[in-house]
Design a protein around this nucleic acid. Structure first.
Lengths: 111, 111
DNA sequence: CCTCTCATTCGACATTCATCGTACAAGAGT
DNA sequence: ACTCTTGTACGATGAATGTCGAATGAGAGG
C-alpha cells in the first residue's frame, strides 16, 4: 500500500465562503505566522519541520492551526509528514489582491 | 482667542518610516476598529462621539489609541473635541494599495 | 522488533487584549 | 458661576494568545 493517512482528528479547512477577513488579518499579524506565509510564497508545498522559524514544535503546530482555520493554508497528511501549502486560489477568488498587498507590504517594510 | 488645545499628554503619532505592517494588521483585525476605519473612508474627519459603534466611551478611546499608534489614523485636538481622520496619504506612500485591498476585502465579506 | 523521526495534544504559564465603570479634566453655553 | 458635553485616565476583570515541556501516536527504516 502506498500511503494511508494518519488516524488523527481530521484537518478542518473552512470553505472560501466562510473566510473572514478579520480572522485572516489576525492570523497574519504575528511575525512567526507571516514568516510562514512568506516562505510558502516561494515554495508550493513544505513539510512542517522545514520552516526557518525559531519556536518550539508545539508552538509551530499552534501557528499552523491559526493559519489553517483562517483559510490561509491547507494541510495534507502524507505518512509521517504533514505538508503545508498556501490556499492561493481560494484566497484570490474570495478576496482579490488581498494577500498580494499584505505580503508585498510586509516585504516592503523589512527594509 | 480662537481655540487652545487641551492640557493633556500630547497625541503620539508615529512617522511613516515607523509604520509596522504587523501592527496595522493587528489594528485592523478587530471588528470595532475596522468599522471605525470604514466609517472614516466615507468622511474626511469625524469627532469621536459620532461613530456608530456599540461600545463604552472608554473602550472607544482604547481603540483609537491602537489605531493611532499603528499609524492608521491621525487625531487632532480642537477645543473640547478630538477630530479623527485616516492617514490616507501616509499609508498609501508607505504601503501602496494595502488599505484599499483590506477595506475592499472587508466590505466584500459583509455580503 | 526496536528505534528514530515527525508532528501532535495536553497542561501550564505569563502576557496581551477588549471591555467596562468610575472618576476626572476641560471646553461650551447658558 | 453653574452645568452640560466631550473624551480621557485608571483600575479591574475575564478571555484570548504565544510560549514551552512532556507525553503521545504513528509512520519509516534498520
Amino acid at each position: 500500500m502506498p500511503r494511508s493517512p494518519r488516524n488523527r482528528p481530521a484537518l478542518t479547512h473552512p470553505e472560501p465562503d466562510e473566510f473572514d477577513v478579520l480572522d485572516i488579518l489576525h492570523a497574519l499579524s504575528d511575525p512567526t505566522r507571516m514568516t510562514i506565509v512568506q516562505t510558502l510564497r516561494a515554495a508550493p508545498e513544505r513539510a512542517c519541520g522545514t520552516f526557518a522559524v525559531d519556536v518550539a514544535p508545539s508552538t509551530l503546530t499552534h501557528h499552523f492551526r491559526v493559519l489553517r482555520e483562517a483559510g490561509v493554508i491547507r494541510q495534507r497528511e502524507d505518512g509521517n509528514r504533514r505538508w503545508t501549502a498556501l490556499r492561493d486560489e481560494d484566497l484570490e477568488a474570495r478576496f482579490p489582491g488581498l494577500m498580494d498587498a499584505i505580503v508585498t507590504a510586509y516585504e516592503n517594510g523589512l527594509a
